[in-house]
Design a protein around this nucleic acid. Structure first.
Lengths: 195, 195
DNA sequence: CCAGCATGTAGTCAGTGTCAACATTATTCA
DNA sequence: TGAATAATGTTGACACTGACTACATGCTGG
């Protein structure tokens, strides 16, 4: 058991501690050297696992998208069509609310500027699933005469927007604190149940 | 005409150059010292106008919210009710698309963490106007039996979400490039025209 | 077993935000 | 008007950061 020199799984520890730091102190306060200190490791050790700070954030973002994908796909008894679409949206929003800090890293514009192919690919996959669900819902009679592109834009805006409104400090002072899960679901359903 | 020592209106120049830098190079690359260099002024001069970098961003954010407010209120022939609501949403989204860099600063979580009362107040004003417009629309027969809180959450999510989807690089690879203003309007109208 | 690789360390560099001490210009009011 | 004072700008410093290099240590497979 090498207690001192080698950490064990520094790579993993960096990712987890980074998310924790963003929760506690905000993205602004996240630094590689700070992480190194927290993990009792020299200031340059993180660079052995991530060549750059942006690479660390990219990895975290990629992991976030994968988790969102799981959450959006974790539908119970997915009755194809509108029901599946509904569960997907709800799953997405639920994950972002429960992982607000992780989600904040994921939607940092500077992360996307350095996005690697892996991250881009996972975003494409998420988009494909969303488009497919819209298609199936339309085949099952939902808004049959609406342009799928328009429906996709609306779906994306509503899910991302709801996630942000519920997690971003910018909106916390403006959103009624007594908002319940039922209210959130009702808001999302405005889009789904309308004909 | 003091050409050398005094700048003239350094405060204003800092705000404008900062927005420009974010457009050109991203928020990540914005630095007070860089701004000072660009404006041919010593590295500490900006601190005479903004005690901290966060204060500069806060000021820019505040100005942004004020402009959004104008854009959201600039309704032509505002027929009270749904029409006014519609024009407000469209104005908001249009401004964000035309001022994507400015909007990006505005919704930086780290800005909100250091928000001053002025900024908070302007956000409250915007929220009040949105709520009021919903109330009037409901009084004029739109979705009369829906909870106003739910409608407000939905409105906020849809406008913010649409703005972000259309301006954030994260979504540019996923949104169809041939999306027209008409498509965007149709997406927003999903919420408004439904009964 | 030991050669090579993965991982960690120490030292350094340029760039940054912020502060304090000082310099210059603008403004106010006796 | 002119001198005190406020506003604005400069210089120099400090601690912190991301990143690079050279070196040290531990691990693993031929």
């Amino acid at each position: 058991m090498s207690e001192q020199y080698h950490h064990g799984d520094l790579r993993r520890a960096l990712v987890e501690r980074a998310i924790q730091v963003v929760e506690e102190k905000g993205l602004e306060k996240l630094s590689l050297r700070g992480l190194a200190r927290d993990l009792n490791v020299s200031h340059a050790a993180p660079l052995r696992h991530f060549p750059t700070k942006a690479a660390l954030l990219t990895e975290i973002a990629h992991e976030g998208v994968m988790r969102v994908l799981e959450a959006a796909e974790a539908t119970e008894n997915p009755e194809p069509g509108l029901d599946q679409l509904r569960q997907m949206i709800t799953g997405y929003v639920r994950w972002t609310v429960e992982n607000a800090a992780h989600y904040q890293i994921l939607r940092n514009p500077d992360v996307m500027r350095h996005a690697n192919d892996e991250l881009k690919q996972s975003l494409q996959t998420l988009a494909a699933i969303q488009r497919e669900n819209i298609k199936v819902a339309q085949e099952n009679g939902w808004r049959t005469d609406e342009n799928p592109q328009v429906l996709y834009l609306h779906l994306l805006s509503l899910t991302a927007g709801t996630a942000i409104v519920l997690t971003d400090p910018m909106y916390s002072s403006v959103i009624h604190p007594a908002l319940t899960d039922v209210d959130i679901q009702r808001s999302l359903d405005q889009f789904l149940t309308a004909n």
